[in-house]
Simulated scan of single mutants.
Amino acid sequence: MRRFWFLKIAGMILVFFTAASALVMVLWNWLMPAIFGLVAITFWQAAGILLLSKIIFGFGKGGKHGHQHSTPWKHWQHKWHNMPEDQREKWKQKFADKWCTGRHETETPEFKKEAE
């Protein structure tokens, strides 16, 4: 009886993986050559892409069991909303100093001091 149960589950996984691979192949061949000029792929290449993406990005948790925040973004969103306003301003300034490249060198206070 156990063997039948195992075969049934394995068959369902195989059917799902086959359908998902076919979907990846159809969507890839429909979108990627037209948008990015890439070549069409075969079913087996689509299966490889699907498997590789699952290895890299994970197979999922199957629901919201076990962890309060299901994604890192939700964790930071929760943290941000519970952060005091003065700490938010410090984070904003730190982020702007490190990542915002819209400022030109001539706009920095150090450059203005050198120019005077």
Rank of each mutant, 00 (worst) to 15 (best):
M1F: 09
M1G: 11
R2W: 08
R3L: 15
F4G: 08
F4W: 14
W5K: 14
L7N: 09
M12S: 10
L14F: 10
V15H: 04
F16C: 02
F16A: 10
F17C: 10
T18C: 10
T18N: 00
T18L: 12
A19G: 06
A19C: 09
A20R: 00
S21P: 00
A22T: 05
L23I: 15
M25S: 00
M25A: 03
L27H: 12
L27Y: 13
W30R: 06
L31D: 05
L31N: 03
M32T: 00
M32R: 05
P33D: 05
P33I: 06
A34C: 04
A34H: 02
A34I: 10
I35F: 13
F36V: 09
F36G: 02
G37V: 07
L38V: 07
V39T: 13
A40H: 05
I41L: 02
I41S: 01
T42S: 15
Q45L: 06
Q45R: 07
Q45D: 07
A47C: 09
I49P: 02
I49A: 04
L50P: 03
L50D: 00
L51G: 10
L52C: 14
L52M: 14
S53P: 00
K54Y: 15
I55K: 04
I55F: 15
G58S: 04
G58V: 06
F59A: 09
F59M: 12
G60A: 03
G60H: 03
G60V: 03
K61N: 15
K61C: 04
G62Q: 06
G63L: 05
G63D: 08
K64Y: 10
K64T: 07
H65I: 14
H65C: 11
G66F: 06
G66M: 06
H67Y: 11
H67P: 00
Q68P: 00
T71Q: 05
P72V: 08
P72Y: 05
P72W: 11
K74P: 00
W76E: 11
Q77K: 11
H78C: 07
K79Q: 12
K79D: 11
H81P: 01
M83C: 04
M83W: 08
P84D: 13
P84Y: 05
E89V: 13
K90Y: 11
K90A: 09
W91I: 13
K92S: 03
K94A: 15
K94V: 05
F95W: 15
D97Q: 04
D97H: 02
W99L: 03
T101D: 12
R103I: 10
T106E: 15
T106I: 10
T106C: 08
T108R: 13
F111V: 01
F111K: 04
E114Q: 13
E114I: 07
E114Y: 11
E116M: 05
